[in-house]
Design a protein around this nucleic acid. Structure first.
Lengths: 356, 356
DNA sequence: ATGCTCTGATTAAACGTTTAAGCACGAATA
DNA sequence: TATTCGTGCTTAAACGTTTAATCAGAGCAT
């Protein structure tokens, strides 16, 4: 920057003003400065700027169990939204335990992030950490900034299943302590309506008894009359799907299987999974926007309130709708009441056809 | 820091020296400074330090298609290794195209990262970017810093299959232009040995003809005598597994299916997938170590070479072994020559057993 | 006693910005 | 004609460190 100033015979301050458009600089000079800057290949030192202004232009992203297959989607969406807004993204993982989570938050704070988005480990509440925080969890948890409307997504899926004619469905979740899973289950039940019988299986509980990775006994359930298995995540859906297939139970001819999140493999397995997808892009946009609103000084806020708020930030809309994606893993139940049984599943050839 | 200096009646420089142990400070004073520092809850300003020293303590991580399900593993391992070494990790995604990749690199550079680890989009070569770079690709590509020994992993898997008695196996990859997939295929062929017949199917090619997500026609292949389907990634393996199951072909009783990478679902599907896992933790450690070696001034390098190198950095070992994980999706072929056919698959009950 | 070296500390500059305050000058106002 | 004002720029301080250079004093050999 001083090089530009020297080359043009002006002061460094003027160059700064010219480039930022803040002070009073003549239009012609601004042009000359711009020209010289790009001629010299000037890139501002974000470090120096950070030191002076106290803002680093970096946001932290803390994720719970990083092994979560949803992570790529989230990270990508956040990174995208942040970099569109001119911010960088520093990652930190709070693998599992709460101690690691607070430690990760501490590390981000030390690096001077201007704010952070946290998708909390299930059940944890984020205390005031000393910088603006956007929490992505589920609308029903207090302190949530923005998230997918998991309840409504479940309800869409429930209606889909009910409309197909299912009257006895098994809901499958992993952990009963997860807010988002509970919301999804709640929505599912609501969408299915009062006239359909449903039961909920929490995988964590059956694994506590029978060991990790144990069979879920889904074939028995099918024999007991369940015609649909609505998992609350695609991973569980995949588990259900393969277990049923292995047992020789046709999906979707005999029973239907559904998931949540539209993970990478959902479209690729046979039969392709019917699922519901969250709109991570707009969730990320909203979260970042809320964060930035808290970070950057409000133009009109003349009086007081100069401090950036240091707690959880809020968004104008805290829930964004999910999208039902109907693929091949759902159909009317084998003994369904719908008359056009086969017509409703044109894309699902029988085993014989698929191998021909 | 000046607060500490004032409280103790010494100069700020002395405090700095005391805390860093660099200058000449009396032991007692060092103690007092330490005490005062923690009493006052002093945290150094990394920004100011960065401005002064020119090093930010931040590493960049640029990932190819961020939707890659391997991403969580990589990100977690890198973040872990970096933060153990006292560095932060800034992420950037080069979704697909090369332009985005160079743009992402540029953004990281602007933020003043001290170095970056790049897992390149398949086929791209990383030019000198102006800071130390660790490339994680595959040992056979030039410029690679460190990576899993994909070839050797393939060879392990090949031997496993050959030992089980398979004599005709189908290799399944997605893209023929991927270096790591080619290495895996090469290793597979070598491990299978000369006496087993094998064919390679590139999914990208069949999808170019039949459309994305089309059936792969694997049942036909099974009927044509292939007894094992060795995919070069777990995603393809999953696709193969479900397609075969759907067609009523038993895995592993009739044919075996294997994958690569031990992704999240591999252990959870039925039958659990036999696969080979890469040791991302030590890969990340090596990459970060190599990077840091290039970044931090060598203690003994008195003369010249003060500049940090600005190109691809090298590691003492460029390949780390993969680990074969044998689960339930592999067994001797139905018509195999091995006499103890059933004894070799104790963990794989038949369909009838699993549903009892 | 004088000069030398070693020790423990201080001073001051520097990193590259931003920004409040000041200054000179010409135009508009009284 | 004297005062005020707006414009276009400069000066200087500040952000919080690090580090080279300097310095005062003590111990020690000459």
């Amino acid at each position: 920057m001083s090089a530009i100033a020297a080359a043009l015979g002006v002061s460094a301050a003027t160059v700064s003003n010219a480039l930022s458009g803040k002070g009073r600089v003549s239009p012609e000079l601004i042009e000359k400065v711009r020209a010289k800057a790009s001629e010299l290949g000037y890139v501002p030192s974000l470090t120096a700027r950070a030191l002076r202004t106290g803002r680093t232009g970096v946001l932290g992203l803390v994720l719970p169990d990083i092994a979560n297959p949803l992570f790529p989607q989230i990270a990508q969406a956040i990174e995208n939204a942040a970099s569109n807004a001119g911010y960088g993204v520093l990652i930190a993982n709070s693998r599992g335990d709460i101690a690691a989570q607070t430690e990760a938050i501490g590390r981000l704070l030390e690096r001077g992030v201007d704010g952070m988005v946290i998708v909390p480990r299930r059940g944890t509440r984020i205390a005031d950490v000393g910088c603006p925080v956007a929490v992505i969890d589920t609308p029903s948890t207090p302190g949530n900034t923005v998230s997918a409307d998991h309840w409504e997504g479940g309800s869409q899926m429930g209606r889909h299943l009910a409309e197909l004619g299912h009257r006895k469905v098994l809901l499958i979740g992993t952990s009963a302590s997860s807010n988002v899973q509970n919301d999804r289950v709640g929505g599912l039940k609501a969408g299915l309506g009062a006239q359909v019988e449903c039961d909920t299986m929490w995988i964590e509980k059956v694994e506590a008894v029978s060991g990790e990775g144990c069979p879920l006994g889904l074939a028995d359930k099918a024999r007991a009359g369940f015609t649909a298995f609505a998992a609350v995540s695609d991973l569980s859906a995949l588990r259900a799907l393969t277990e049923l297939q292995r047992a020789g139970i046709g999906v979707p001819e005999t029973v239907s299987v559904t998931g949540f999140d539209d993970l990478i493999w959902s479209a690729v397995v046979t039969p392709a999974l019917t699922t519901v997808r969250m709109d991570m892009a707009t969730i990320a946009d909203l979260a970042i926007a809320a964060l930035i609103r808290a970070i950057e000084p409000e133009g009109e806020a003349e009086n007081g309130a100069e401090e950036v708020s240091t707690g959880n930030v809020i968004s104008e809309t805290d829930r964004v709708p999910m999208q039902l994606i109907i693929r091949q893993s759902t159909a009317a139940p084998y003994a369904g009441r719908t008359p056009n049984l086969h017509a409703s599943t044109p894309n699902t050839p029988t085993a014989g056809e698929i191998t021909s």
